[in-house]
Computed example of a mutant assay.
Amino acid sequence: MDLSPNTSEQNPLFQKLEKVRRRQGKVRDTHITLAHGSGGKAMRDLIDEIFVKSFDNPILSQLEDQASFNLAHLMSQGDRLAFTTDSYVVDPLFFPGSDIGELAVNGTVNDLAVSGAKPLYLTCSVILEEGLPTETLRRVAASMQAAARKADIQIVTGDTKVVHRGAADKLFINTAGIGVIPKGIEISAQKVQPGDVVIINGELGNHGAAILIARGELALDTDIESDCQPLHNLVANILKVCPEVHAMRDATRGGLATVLNEFALSSNVGIRLDEKSIPVREEVKGVCEILGLDPLYLANEGKLVVVVPKKSAEAVLSAMKSHPAGKDAAIIAEVSASPPGVVLLKTVFNAERIVDMLVGDQLPRIC
């Protein structure tokens, strides 16, 4: 059959092929099938309609196997790259205040932000279980794009895999992020010094409590929502008034207690917490009391812990309170030379107890 350039447009086979291509991006399946991970047309349609359509930007639209960046543009914003990756397996996928898509974006944005970096680009790789409703995937992709737009970043490349029914649990997401750290910003857990002050940007434990209640295993009726939110603009506020921030982390799995232990061990210092100063919602305290949990170990998805020189503490606190993500910020601890590598809590009864690293997992699949 002659398919030369002069005759191909009139050829019935060519016309049929063009008709099929024009239908590209029309996903009619109501549920994910193994074909959606096969590398063929079903997979291409899924990627085009759900991911490319949702995340549309000039870099992603090239549909190469990688994203390419202009190095001069990147380095004009700072002198170092920050690079991170994280995976999200939260159960349930949708919970009060957020969902797995927004969580995946904000979690990676915040991992970049606490290094002082300006987040710029994300990847999105998904592992889908056969049988997942297609509409669920659409909702998650739309949520990711809304979160990316809010954080002023672009999702520029990714990957899609489908596994047999029962080989995963609905949907897992992996994201990687790239940001640029401005010149002069040196934030590290190894820079904490005696005399420093520890500040947190708001209430602890809301995310962990919201997930626990959303699983429906407890007959509890509360309005607790996840604190999932991007923190890069809050970090920018902090760095404007205190470029010499010593350490900063987001308090996710393991909560505040784990972050402070990491700081204490990395810098070989002591940290003394004041329980009266730690902001925790009464509803979260109630959930913890019922279940025997400690809010210091509950996961958060919109909380950062910042360590600054004492002379800068009030300026940093004021800058944090001026941002919506830091309106409930509080000074909660001071750093001492001893006992080295130990976190102590001054209780409401004026006694002291050691706050150790979390052993095991209070709540699995929290993020």
Rank of each mutant, 00 (worst) to 15 (best):
V305M: 03
V241S: 03
K183N: 12
A142M: 06
K26T: 15
Q362S: 03
P12F: 02
E64P: 00
T30V: 09
I181A: 05
D86E: 14
V269N: 02
A329K: 06
G116Q: 09
T252M: 01
V89A: 14
Y121A: 02
I47H: 05
D223C: 04
E102V: 02
A330D: 09
S267Q: 02
I153L: 14
K285H: 15
T347Y: 02
A236T: 13
A168L: 10
L363I: 15
V140H: 06
F14N: 11
I187K: 10
G360S: 08
L3N: 03
H323D: 15
I50Y: 00
P230F: 11
M43D: 11
R365N: 15
K16I: 10
G97M: 02
L344H: 03
E129L: 06
G116K: 06
L212D: 06
T30F: 11
H323L: 01
A67H: 00
G107P: 07
F95D: 04
P243S: 10
P133S: 14
V287I: 15
F172H: 13
D221F: 09
G205N: 11
D274K: 07
A236Q: 14
V114G: 02
A148N: 11
V316A: 03
V307P: 02
D111A: 14
G78I: 08
E9Y: 12
V52L: 00
G97Q: 03
L112A: 05
